[in-house]
Write a protein that binds this DNA or RNA. Structure first.
Lengths: 337, 337
DNA sequence: GTTGGCACTCGGTAGACTTAACTGCTAAAG
DNA sequence: CTTTAGCAGTTAAGTCTACCGAGTGCCAAC
């Protein structure tokens, strides 16, 4: 078993996987042999495919069928066999055009990014917004909602607004609200919320006693907003790739639960990877899917992610490329402010 | 053809529809004859069913099968045949418990209402929030985002926050922002945004020239927020009721486009109805679904709606009942503030 | 090591037959 | 004139069989 043999075997594996990605049908030796760049007969291919099956990269749905890649096969393909990350010029154009022409509120930007991703890749797309916990605060305001209810409104440097209602000990006075707003704005300004654990003071005793609760509420407002910044689109698109009803239902029910998707993406990233194939991520409803994750950076700091969920037989080269392209574009766009 | 005959025919229609709702399978004459309260033989039922088919209320999937209700059949059932709107005590309890224990921000309230609806009915649930256009404004604030970007933040009486970025003619000065905030807060306070079309003035010339653009931005902020106040849940649940893949795909792709769902509900309401069955609403992807809409009122004014989307063979009595129950509960809850 | 040849294996399709669930019709009974 | 039992007629769905074709594994020859 020398390098030459392994090279050939590898390129046969690549050919099988790419053929399967295109056709979604088991690939036979004759088809591979007919491909340009493969200079050997189908009999040779057969014996190589046999070896690839023994190595766990391919499998046969049944004896008289062609071969289909296993999870392990896809994994190797992504890790070392993929010809190149080839997005295609027209897709690059679409992405460029999108970011050059996007003038939107942050939520609209993220949600249309998600729409862009799904329409380019035919996968379901996930975009998580910049974590408000890690964003600098610009302003804190208090607004009376009537009765003892007070709304605390936090604006951060991304232009996101977080809020939370709190209960005042008694009917709030306008001047207290304004004063606390000013104190908190100065206290939080240009700090990340998670860093703040000291408490400012006021000469006014009444105000002074209220401040700790307000700080707590502001932090909770920001924590609560973490959940909202997830934009998922394209469920109906992924679903086209499958024809087993149970699979479809499983996928939909995961995509519907945004927190599941977020924690899925987090867990993939935390393993230091960008691609999870089939059962690698452990969500059995998505066992026929691959998940691509690409974090994006604002001013050098990773603040959010872009993700794509599609069938394991997706076109990895192009999907991974698009994910990277868009995550870069989004990071750049958000860095400009 | 006297009243007695029509009564019997009607109760046979009712029996067929209810049996079909329970079993999802074509209903035969023998089964209807065996039901309590039907004192005639299957032969008689057959001839009545024949008549009902001629009248367009029933149809046969094929000659040797039982009968299935037509759209027209369901329509008549909903309009005059439905035994009663029967929600069932345990469901009533769940709804009561929900509204008694819900202490949440408005968005969380609406989204968990939507979750409640879908889990009770197994339909997809839609909750549209109170229109911010028709809500009184409590406060308007301006926050500098850096450079010439300024965020205008509008808080309304429901505790919703709307926002919009605008471009300042030059680097904004803090005192201008505060002053305009105060002027606009006073100007908008306790008015509905859509009513405001006059423009307040300021002695400061610089401020005075900026005000019209700010009013515009505030109005756009509110208009833009209209879209966000839609909470849809339970796509994976409706989908369980169907086994044709194309149907499933169609439903998902509609539910994914929130604006389509909103305009669907609006159009049903504008026809003065609360139930649209099959093709009545004109969305071909939902031709196998029925849509139930129930508006809710806050302080006597209709501000939003609750909707349910399920298969045409849903249990109308219970689903309509739940929709009404929840819309009342939600209205009451929001009236308390 | 590579190749053509060949026997073999299965899944899938097509046709024939059977079964079961209904119906509509008819003629007799109420 | 309505209701009913009985029965022949219709059709989808299930079962069985045969057959085809795609694709394999193996082997002898190159």
């Amino acid at each position: 078993m020398n390098a030459g043999v392994d090279d050939r075997r590898a390129s046969i594996l690549r050919a099988v996987i790419e053929a399967y990605i295109n056709s979604a049908e088991p690939v036979g030796s004759a088809h591979v042999a007919s491909l340009p760049g493969i200079g050997v007969s189908s009999a040779t291919i057969r014996s190589e495919m046999n070896a690839l099956e023994a190595e766990g990269y391919l499998q046969q749905p049944h004896t008289s069928a062609g071969r289909v890649p296993t999870e392990r096969g896809y994994r190797r393909y992504v890790d070392e066999l993929m010809t190149s990350i080839d997005v295609g010029p027209e897709r690059i154009d679409r992405v460029d055009h999108f970011f050059n022409h996007a003038h939107l509120e942050i939520e609209e930007l993220l949600s249309s990014t998600s729409r862009l991703l799904t329409s380019i890749t035919d996968c379901a797309a996930v975009v998580t917004g910049p974590s408000p916990q890690r964003t600098h605060v610009l302003s804190v305001q208090l607004v009376s909602l009537g009765g003892r209810a007070v709304l605390i409104v936090v604006v951060d440097a991304n232009g996101s607004v977080e809020k939370r209602t709190m209960e005042w000990p008694s009917e709030p006075e306008e001047r207290h609200l304004i004063e606390i707003g000013t104190i908190l704005t100065n206290h939080f300004r240009n700090r990340e919320v998670r860093e703040v654990d000291d408490i400012p003071h006021s000469p006014d005793a009444m105000v002074d006693t209220l401040i700790p609760a307000c700080i707590l509420a502001a932090k909770e407002a920001v924590r609560g907003a973490e959940r909202d910044g997830v934009f998922i689109d394209g469920a109906s698109r992924v679903v086209r790739a499958f024809d087993a009803l149970e699979t479809v239902r499983g996928i939909i029910s995961i995509l519907e639960r945004h927190y599941m998707v977020v924690s899925l993406m987090r867990s993939i990233l935390s393993k230091g990877q960008g691609v999870a194939i089939g059962s690698e991520h452990g969500l059995s409803s998505l066992r026929e899917c691959a998940v691509i994750v690409a974090p994006y950076r604002v001013d050098g700091v990773q603040v959010g992610t872009v993700g794509l969920i599609g069938p394991t037989r997706m076109n990895y080269g192009s999907v991974i490329g698009v994910a990277q392209l868009v995550s870069e574009g989004l990071g750049k766009r958000l860095s400009e402010g």
